[in-house]
Computed example of a mutant assay.
Amino acid sequence: MNPAEDGAKRPVDGSLVKILTHRRDDRGMRLEEFAGRCVRRGEIHELVTTDQHDTTPGAVVDRVGFLGFVEVGTGGVLDRGDEVRIDGRPVGTVLGFDACHFPNHYNVLIAVDTTTTGPELGLRPGMEVRFGSGS
């Protein structure tokens, strides 16, 4: 992302459709080279926490906690550094994207201090998810 080219944008909203309960220390996700991705209303993407914060394209992300799947309600652009809130509570910031399951879905990697799972955050289907700067 080039700050000189980065302008204002609206938040991307969605809602949780499935909660995930597991974590891994050997996942082997690879960070995409792109700092932003467009998402369309109705798409479903996976939310994954990680305490590994390397943004180098191709960086391997092994330590992950799975939150769940979100259905996009308001399309837009997800960018590295966007704040992620669920049910109004801050969860972390977008680190980047892993496309191992694309075009089915992206893994949206969320930078956190400690990996966490859906149940550990008390997540339930239907909770609102919001991505954006200062969302």
Rank of each mutant, 00 (worst) to 15 (best):
M1P: 01
M1R: 11
N2D: 09
P3L: 15
A4W: 10
A4T: 14
A4K: 02
A4L: 12
D6P: 07
G7C: 13
A8E: 04
K9M: 13
P11C: 04
V12L: 05
D13R: 01
D13I: 06
G14P: 07
G14Y: 05
G14E: 04
S15V: 15
S15Y: 10
L16S: 04
L16G: 03
V17I: 15
K18E: 06
I19A: 09
I19N: 03
I19E: 04
I19G: 03
L20V: 02
T21R: 10
R24C: 11
D25C: 13
D26M: 11
R27L: 15
G28F: 11
M29N: 10
R30T: 00
R30Q: 08
R30E: 03
L31W: 00
L31Y: 03
E32H: 10
E33G: 11
E33L: 00
F34I: 13
F34M: 12
A35K: 09
A35W: 15
G36P: 00
G36V: 08
G36N: 01
G36T: 12
R37K: 10
G42P: 02
I44N: 14
I44W: 14
I44E: 15
E46P: 04
L47A: 07
V48K: 08
T49L: 06
T49R: 01
T50W: 02
D51G: 08
Q52N: 03
H53D: 10
D54L: 06
T55Q: 05
P57Y: 03
G58A: 12
G58T: 13
V61W: 02
V61M: 04
D62V: 13
R63A: 14
V64H: 04
G65R: 07
F66T: 01
F66M: 07
L67K: 03
L67W: 02
F69N: 01
V70P: 02
E71N: 10
G73R: 14
G73S: 14
G73C: 07
G73A: 12
T74E: 14
T74K: 04
T74Q: 14
G75W: 06
G76I: 04
L78M: 06
D79M: 04
G81A: 07
G81M: 07
E83C: 14
I86N: 05
G88A: 11
V91F: 07
G92L: 00
T93R: 12
T93I: 12
V94M: 07
L95S: 05
L95T: 07
L95D: 00
G96Q: 07
F97E: 08
F97Q: 05
F97T: 02
A99P: 06
C100P: 03
H101T: 14
H101N: 09
P103W: 09
N104I: 13
Y106K: 06
N107C: 02
N107S: 05
N107R: 09
N107D: 02
V108L: 01
V108A: 01
I110G: 05
A111C: 08
D113K: 03
T115S: 08
T115Y: 03
T117Q: 08
T117K: 03
P119F: 04
P119Y: 13
E120F: 07
L121Y: 09
L121M: 05
L121V: 06
G122D: 09
L123W: 10
L123G: 00
P125M: 00
G126L: 10
G126D: 14
R130K: 08
F131A: 01
G132K: 05
G132D: 11
G132S: 12
S133C: 10
S133V: 11
S133F: 12
G134T: 13
G134E: 15
G134L: 09
